[in-house]
Amino acid sequence: MEENEQIIGSKSFTAVAVNCASKAGEWIKSRIGQFAEPDLKHSMHDLVTEVDKGSERLIRNLIGTHFPHHSFLGEEGVEPGPEASARALEKVSDAEYLWIVDPIDGTTNYVHDFPFYSVSIALARKGQVIVGVVYDPSRDELFVAERGKGAYVHGKRMSISGEKALRQSLVATGFPADHTAALPANLKQIQAVAPQVRNVRVAGSAALHMAYVAAGRLSGFWEIGLNAWDLAAGSLLVEEAGGRVTDQSGEPYHLGVRNVAASNGWIHGELLEALKKA
């Protein structure tokens, strides 16, 4: 089987990722307004619905039929909180092939029918992301990247925005669900960054924000306390579109990064500087 997978190569990995993302996206869109009261997860602001779980099951089953020997890390299988996330990642860290899935990134938006949520699917080989797919069912936009082959939306090659300075830039961030540490820290960063940029957006899906950096719609994105499934697919989209993804001290992105900075590259130093000052 392993050899066959090598022969099949990345093309089929990407095809499976795209198929999973679009099927899951269609399914979650069809379920809007039909679900019961959401369970409460890590905090009231981190809503999780039966739709999340159904979407993850659908993706896991589809991947399993094609690649039964591959490992799988999905948001729904992991207890809330940073320690559990770190443990879950540790458990699969030596997998040759690891699928990293967020079945609905932006659950709170989804629950409120605010059309900014996405399905995020990445495949890492020995810890390096080689395929990244983010699908926005509301706009039917599919963002796809394959390592070394560029990043695409609507089948057109994406490239990062051309802003050279922070003051010309539209950037995005999030309000973390962890209200004890991550949220206050991120609010301080917003206070530091906002006066230095054209404007800041907080739309509620890290994966889509990363896709928007890749597509040149945002010049940068940062947030504190994210997980591998929020960032893995988006990190490849940004890199393959010509941008830069690091942790907030400027170290290169890896699957364990929680405090992220992504940008068109031009403004990266300035953005990191502003975050450090906070």
Results as ranks from 00 to 15, higher is better:
Tyr152Cys: 11
Leu208Gly: 03
Leu98Thr: 03
Asn199Gln: 15
Glu270Cys: 03
Asn61Met: 06
Pro184Ala: 04
Ile121Pro: 00
Lys41Ile: 06
His66Val: 11
Glu270Leu: 09
Ala88Tyr: 12
Ala95Cys: 07
Ala203Thr: 05
Glu79Leu: 15
Val257Asp: 00
Lys91Thr: 10
Ile63Thr: 01
Tyr253Met: 09
His69Pro: 05
Glu5His: 01
Lys277Ile: 11
Thr180Cys: 10
Asn109Cys: 14
Leu183Asp: 00
Val78Asp: 01
Ala181Thr: 13
Leu271Met: 15
Ile104Glu: 01
Phe114Thr: 08
Phe67Thr: 05
Tyr152Leu: 15
Ala185Tyr: 11
Val92Ser: 12
Ser93Trp: 07
Val238Met: 10
Pro82Asp: 11
Arg60Glu: 04
Glu83Leu: 13
His42Thr: 13
Lys91Cys: 05
Gln6Ala: 12
Ala274Lys: 03
Gly64Trp: 04
Ser55Tyr: 09
Gly250Phe: 06
Asp102Glu: 09
Lys276Arg: 13
Leu183Phe: 11
Gly204Val: 07
Val101Glu: 05
Glu163Gly: 02
Leu272Gly: 01
Arg217His: 12
Phe13Gln: 07
Tyr110His: 04
Ala17Ser: 04
Ile267Asp: 03
Gln168Cys: 04
Gly106Leu: 14
His254Trp: 01
Ala122Pro: 05
Val257Thr: 14
Glu96Ala: 12
Pro195Phe: 15
Gly148Ala: 07
Ser138Asn: 15
Ala262Arg: 01
Ala211Ser: 12
Ala206Pro: 06
Gly155Glu: 07
Glu76Phe: 09
Leu218Ile: 02
His268Ser: 00
Asp113Trp: 14
Pro82Phe: 03
Glu163Tyr: 04
Gly127Phe: 03
His45Lys: 04
Tyr110Ser: 02
Glu3Arg: 14
